[in-house]
């Protein structure tokens, strides 16, 4: 009888992750469309928070307006759903008033880079200890699929019926140039890698920006002739990106035109709240 072999194999299996601990079950199911990548990213975020060992009451999730910004409604932390593009301003206030709080900002590409573009660059410049998760789905899903600052050239949207002619923003390059001390990119397809990236971003002291590529099958997908949510994930997220560690080893033609995944930039620089505190203490001693 071959039963013992099966039993041995079974022990390697872990029990599924219990998301209910971090969710508000009465708010579910969420409003996101079938196949929307935001749910996958939310799961990776919850696992990363769990692995970071953070106390639920010491975490604050802040968001602006948009599909991705619905996240705080579903998670059981201190949460704040704020103005369009101004999530980072509110988050800065929270962090400044309560430096012990772990503040995670969940924002969309339009929210962070277009409407809140100015707040984004100045948050990066200050290097205040926030974890910024930018859900990049290249569309304004909630208002009907208009093109966003990350929509690739030639892609159709409600407001670009003949294809977008605007060059897209690279959120990572922008964050790096503005002075963020941790810049990374992940995708909903590479969900375990994303979990590790978010964990590293949470543990980093300073502004950490994670650009997360996910799919909007309802607007971007339908208008650009993707067959399904899985097809979008495979074309945009799997084939359209390459890990930064592998990029050096691959021939240049395989890296050309692809977005780099993984930790792209990590430096140490004095954090804003700490600097402020030390300045105040120094001046208080002087008198």
């Amino acid at each position: 009888m071959s039963a013992p072999a099966v039993t041995e194999k079974k022990e390697k299996i872990s029990v599924p992750f219990d998301y209910n601990k971090y969710l508000r079950p009465n708010k579910l199911p969420h409003i996101w469309c079938p196949g929307c990548g935001h749910g996958i990213v939310l799961k990776a975020m919850l696992r990363a928070i769990h692995n970071a060992g953070l106390d639920q009451d010491k975490v604050c999730v802040v968001s602006g307006i948009g599909c991705s910004s619905r996240t705080p409604g579903y998670v059981d932390f201190n949460t704040l759903h704020t103005l369009h593009g101004r999530a980072l301003s509110f988050a800065t206030g929270i962090k400044f008033a309560k430096p012990d709080m772990k503040v995670i900002v969940v924002t969309g590409d339009g929210d962070a880079l277009a409407i809140g573009g100015n707040h984004f660059i100045h948050t990066c410049r200050r290097n205040i200890d926030l974890t910024v998760l930018v859900f990049t789905n290249a569309t304004y899903g909630m208002t009907g699929g208009q093109y966003s600052p990350t929509t690739p050239i030639g892609s159709q949207a409600t407001t670009s019926r003949y294809g977008s002619i605007e060059p897209p923003f690279d959120a990572c390059e922008m964050a790096k140039a503005a002075g963020a001390t941790f810049v990374a990119r992940g995708t909903a397809y590479h969900t375990l890698e994303l979990e590790k990236t978010i964990l590293e971003a949470i543990n980093h002291k300073g502004t950490s920006v994670v650009d997360i590529i996910d799919a909007c099958p309802t607007y971007f997908g339908r208008m650009n002739k993707y067959k399904s949510a899985t097809h979008m994930m495979e074309v945009i997220e799997k084939d359209g990106t390459v890990n930064v560690k592998q990029a050096d080893k691959l021939p240049p033609e395989k890296v050309q035109g692809k977005a780099l995944r993984g930790v792209l930039h990590k430096v140490e620089r004095p954090e804003y709240c700490e600097q402020y505190e030390s300045l105040i203490m120094e001046k208080a001693k002087g008198k």
Partner: peptide, 19 residues
């Protein structure tokens, strides 16, 4: 095979595999 790939990528918290 209990690989849990369905659970990992379900966006809706709708599927889980128990051993």
């Amino acid at each position: 095979t209990r690989c849990q790939l369905c659970d990992l990528r379900c966006p809706d918290f709708a599927i889980q595999v128990f051993d």
